[in-house]
Amino acid sequence: PREAYIVTIEKGKPGQTVTWYQLRADHPKPDSLISEHPTAQEAMDAKKRYED
């Protein structure tokens, strides 16, 4: 089974940042970016789909 994890990042100019959620996995390479999402819920949904 595949495993993934969610990383929170800040995008934008200082003082005007927006939080994004990255879905990452250690396949095919360590810390590979799988997808980016504007909400934590979307990231969790993507994580479930990826791991299923």
Rank of each mutant, 00 (worst) to 15 (best):
P1C: 13
P1R: 15
P1W: 14
P1D: 09
P1F: 14
P1I: 14
P1E: 10
R2W: 14
R2C: 12
R2K: 11
R2H: 12
R2Q: 07
E3P: 09
E3W: 15
E3F: 15
E3L: 15
E3R: 15
E3V: 15
E3H: 15
E3S: 15
E3N: 15
A4R: 02
A4E: 01
A4N: 02
A4T: 08
A4M: 08
Y5Q: 04
Y5W: 15
Y5F: 10
Y5I: 06
Y5K: 06
Y5P: 00
I6L: 05
I6E: 00
I6V: 08
V7I: 12
V7C: 11
V7D: 02
V7Q: 06
V7H: 05
V7W: 05
T8C: 11
T8K: 15
T8R: 13
T8M: 14
I9N: 03
I9S: 04
I9R: 04
I9F: 07
I9H: 04
E10A: 08
E10Q: 14
E10L: 14
K11T: 06
K11L: 08
K11E: 05
K11Y: 11
K11F: 07
G12C: 04
G12S: 05
G12R: 05
G12P: 03
K13E: 15
K13A: 13
K13Q: 14
K13H: 13
K13G: 13
K13R: 12
P14G: 09
P14H: 10
P14T: 09
P14N: 12
P14Y: 11
P14D: 13
G15H: 06
G15A: 05
G15L: 06
G15E: 06
G15K: 05
G15M: 05
G15S: 06
Q16M: 14
Q16Y: 12
Q16E: 14
T17L: 13
T17A: 09
T17C: 08
V18R: 11
V18P: 01
V18Y: 09
T19G: 03
T19L: 12
T19F: 10
T19R: 09
T19C: 07
T19M: 09
W20I: 08
W20A: 04
W20V: 08
W20M: 06
W20E: 02
Y21L: 01
Y21F: 11
Y21E: 00
Y21V: 01
Y21T: 00
Q22S: 04
Q22K: 00
Q22G: 02
Q22P: 01
Q22D: 01
L23K: 01
L23F: 02
L23V: 13
L23I: 06
L23R: 00
L23T: 02
R24W: 15
R24C: 08
R24N: 02
R24I: 08
A25K: 08
A25G: 07
A25W: 04
A25M: 06
A25C: 12
A25S: 15
D26Q: 08
D26M: 13
D26S: 14
D26N: 15
H27C: 11
H27D: 09
H27E: 12
H27P: 03
P28C: 07
P28I: 08
P28N: 07
K29M: 14
K29I: 13
K29A: 12
P30D: 06
P30H: 09
P30W: 08
D31E: 09
D31N: 15
D31M: 12
D31Q: 11
S32Q: 09
S32C: 07
L33A: 04
L33I: 13
L33W: 05
L33S: 02
L33G: 01
L33N: 02
I34W: 03
I34H: 03
I34M: 04
I34Q: 04
I34N: 01
I34C: 03
S35C: 03
S35M: 01
S35V: 01
S35W: 01
E36F: 03
E36S: 05
E36L: 04
H37S: 02
H37A: 01
H37G: 00
H37D: 01
H37C: 02
P38F: 08
T39P: 00
T39A: 03
T39G: 03
T39S: 10
T39C: 04
T39D: 06
T39K: 03
A40E: 15
A40I: 15
A40Q: 15
Q41H: 09
Q41E: 14
Q41C: 08
Q41Y: 07
Q41R: 11
Q41D: 09
E42T: 05
E42W: 02
E42F: 04
E42Q: 09
E42I: 04
E42P: 01
E42N: 04
A43N: 00
M44E: 13
M44H: 10
M44K: 09
M44D: 07
D45K: 11
D45C: 10
D45V: 11
D45E: 14
D45A: 13
D45P: 00
A46P: 00
A46V: 02
A46D: 02
A46S: 04
A46G: 03
A46R: 02
A46L: 02
A46M: 04
K47N: 02
K47S: 02
K47R: 07
K47Q: 07
K47G: 02
K47T: 01
K47L: 13
K48D: 07
K48V: 10
K48W: 08
K48T: 10
K48R: 13
K48F: 09
K48H: 10
K48P: 00
R49A: 15
R49N: 10
R49G: 06
R49I: 12
Y50E: 02
Y50R: 03
Y50D: 02
E51F: 06
E51V: 08
E51C: 06
E51M: 13
E51Y: 08
D52C: 11
D52A: 15
